[in-house]
């Protein structure tokens, strides 16, 4: 137990060093998210059964941001993430590759993928029983159907496309399957979520489960849901993919992250997405 106690001491010191003293806003902010004056988003729900011992309520990261940041997500024009979704729409209609196809050749409009994002990542026909994230399905289409070059997982083209596809499901509840053939991936994701990484010895849970609502330096810790990804970050003034955020979090523990696109991160993505089951898809959301 000595090792555990030592580890816990380091965590405590780390959290204290990052703490800001008096919290600026200890609790998530009461507010209602209606996008474009018509699409009401579900941003707070009672915790699903398998989360009941963890949270009373599952709360979107939107509630943890300041008024100015929240406002940017209320209107597609004010949300710079939608600029990139529009670029994704241009790519959707662009013929590329030796087969002479665009996305639209098979899928028609991107509206045909409404609902897809509620069950991402998923095990599908193309994935041969593997758990694939949207990026893998997109590249599979590009390589096998379009005979085009795959996009980098974290490339602008890929993020533009995932923003377009996510936006087609906005307002729909996240609906991740956690049992059956998903169970082993979900368990792996859960294990990663609760594993302490890096010199800081921090697990996802230490910040986002035990300390959400608290300040980490000047940042208001959210519950760490991923229903708003790809997310427009004010900090980078661009879209951030789910895996990029995972990598950033583990790097911030001074640990060595899994690779972007690795099976571990896809499993973590599944588990994290399931923790937000019932929240509306918000992607592309706006965060700090």
């Amino acid at each position: 137990m000595r090792g555990f106690a030592k580890g816990a001491g380091i965590v405590l010191a780390g959290v204290m060093a990052l703490g800001l003293g008096a919290p600026l806003a200890a609790q998530p902010i009461e507010d209602t998210l209606i996008v474009n004056e018509e699409l009401e988003m579900t941003t707070r729900i009672p915790a699903p059964e398998y989360m009941a011992e963890i949270f009373d309520e599952v709360i979107s990261g939107w509630h943890f941001r300041t008024g100015e940041t929240r406002d940017m997500q209320r209107d597609d024009f004010d949300n710079p993430g939608m600029l990139f979704a529009e670029q994704g729409r241009d790519a959707w209609n662009t013929v590329e590759g030796d087969a002479g196809h665009s996305c639209a050749s098979c899928h028609e409009g991107p509206e045909s993928l409404a609902g897809y994002w509620t069950q991402n990542p998923r095990i599908g026909g193309d994935s041969n029983g593997e758990l694939w994230a949207a990026e893998q399905y997109i590249n599979n289409c590009r390589e096998t159907r379009m005979e085009a070059e795959p996009w980098g997982w974290d490339s602008n083209q890929m993020k533009n496309m995932t923003a377009l596809i996510a936006s087609q499901s906005r307002g729909m509840p996240m609906n991740i399957t956690t049992d059956g053939e998903y169970a082993e991936h979900w368990e792996l994701g859960k294990e990663i979520y609760y594993t302490r990484y890096g010199q800081m010895q921090l697990a996802c849970a230490n910040c986002h489960e035990e300390n959400n609502g608290q300040m980490i330096r000047a940042d208001h810790l959210s519950q760490g849901h991923i229903n708003g990804f790809p997310t427009y970050r004010l900090r980078t003034a661009g879209l951030v993919s789910r895996h990029n955020r995972f990598r950033g979090c583990i790097r911030d523990t001074r640990g060595v992250p899994y690779g972007i696109g690795s099976p571990e991160f896809v499993a973590l993505e599944l588990y994290l997405a399931s923790r937000g089951n019932g929240l509306s898809v918000e992607g592309p959301a706006v965060r700090n």
Binding site: I216, R217, D219, R233, V240, G248, C249, D252, N288
Partner: peptide
Amino acid sequence: VTIGGCGG
């Protein structure tokens, strides 16, 4: 202007 907790 706040300095965020996480550089992500």
